[in-house]
Design a protein around this nucleic acid. Structure first.
Lengths: 135, 135
DNA sequence: CAGCATCCCGTGCGATACTG
DNA sequence: CAGTATCGCACGGGATGCTG
């Protein structure tokens, strides 16, 4: 994930069925393991900034490499702003841009649905598993 | 993807930071390449059913294998209902369950955001690329 | 018609180690 | 402190071929 093409859409203004359709490309971003969590954490802290270490503390399990990669991609996408204090050692601060904040709306809807309905999905899975065993 | 663990959450009712948190697990599902498109197509057709071939026709680029896999996972998750007509050759019909339909709400919000804002993300990417070249 | 089985490759991502 | 570099592997997913 170190470098991501994210090429401009070219003739990809087509509907959802185009492999380069906007939704597919957005999901390729927020579908990566740590991205949506980073957006959520930054959205909760907004309008304050968060430093790298603070972000890592609020995202248990993330490695330095993946957090760094995730943030770099978010910055590149214009969803996050990065500010470096020129001290030694340097302090780096992150916060959502207006665009990033606007994305947290739809993401919050997804989170709400997940909180409310994932248990039903788990139930459906258990039912399917039982049916599969008693064949 | 032939088999998916999707194990019950155990003690995973924790917040977003749990690796088994509901949002993370939901994104693992709708983040797969064809899932959200299948949900959209089925939601548009609702309450009518769609046959396998009709789904494939409405999802250009999907292979039989991936469509089959995607649908099997959706059925297993209780988001899609599968009905087989016992004829020869068989006709198989799919439609969203109530749970699946409810998921289309948040997904529609994500789609709307993507349609409206992906161009800005592309612009941000181009800007970053230019800055990177003129170093 | 609606799949499942097999082969194969790209890459997301974790673990570990090093640096200005 | 806030990263980058390297290694390694599991896995998503495409191509192809077979079947009830």
């Amino acid at each position: 994930m170190t470098s991501r093409p994210a090429r401009a859409p070219e003739g990809a203004r087509g509907d959802l069925f185009d492999p380069l359709c906007p939704t597919r490309r957005l999901l390729d971003r927020i579908g990566t393991k740590w991205t949506s969590m980073a957006v959520k954490v930054l959205a909760e802290a907004a309008p304050e900034e968060l430093r790298f270490a603070a972000l890592q503390r609020r995202m248990p399990g993330v490695s330095q490499k993946m957090l760094s990669t995730t943030l770099r991609n978010l910055v590149r996408d214009g969803l996050v702003e990065r500010r470096v204090e020129p001290t030694v050692p340097p302090r780096v601060h992150y916060r959502l841009t207006a665009l990033g904040l606007s994305l947290d709306g739809p993401l919050a809807a997804v989170r709400a649905w997940a909180e409310e309905h994932m248990a039903e999905i788990d139930r459906a899975n258990r039912l399917s598993d039982e049916r599969a065993e008693e064949d």
